[in-house]
């Protein structure tokens, strides 16, 4: 028996801003307000990637954030999923060829779910989190099968 298995379906999310204008960040906060209230499903933002199942990344990756993004990704325990939120996160947006950018998030760390929009609506972000949830369930199943073998 492991205590952790009872928390598997309570998805804990770490939000990482890699250079966003805060537009996407405000929509993420909107997901937690009473109108959408994601926390009633056990989905909540946490203060450390070491406690997280999912990385919710907003903004294009600036040069200064490059190694920090990689470090936060590496510090997140497995299995994990990464969601790129917003036009800048998914493609670099209007800043795609800026001199101080390292590119979109998937050029730095592997991304599982893309949520486009500038900013995306809370419904779209919630759908992205659910997609990540499905992906995590599959990852956990495959890890269990691998550990049995």
């Amino acid at each position: 028996m492991r205590l952790n298995k009872y928390f598997e379906r309570s998805l804990w999310v770490f939000h990482l801003n890699t250079g966003s204008c805060n537009g996407c960040d405000i929509e993420i906060v909107a997901c937690l307000t009473p109108r959408y209230d994601l926390e009633r499903f056990g989905i909540k933002l946490v203060g450390s990637p070491k406690h997280a199942d999912v990385l919710l990344v907003t903004g294009p990756v600036t040069g200064r954030m490059l190694d920090r993004v990689k470090r936060v990704y590496e510090q997140t325990p497995d299995p994990k999923a990464v969601i790129a939120v917003g036009a800048c996160g998914t493609s670099g947006g209007v800043f795609y060829n800026s001199y101080n950018l390292s590119g979109s998030i998937d050029k730095v760390i592997p991304v599982d779910v893309y949520v486009p929009g500038c900013p995306p609506r809370p419904e779209a972000i919630i759908n992205g989190v659910l997609q990540a949830w499905i992906k995590l369930e599959k990852l956990r199943e495959s890890m269990k099968v691998a550990s049995v073998k």
Partner: peptide, 25 residues
Amino acid sequence: YIRNKGEDSYKKNTEQDKPFISGNP
């Protein structure tokens, strides 16, 4: 007993072993 039931699947001697300082080394 409760402590032994905690997460033990983290990768030792990697970044998962180090403290989180807002992504800074």
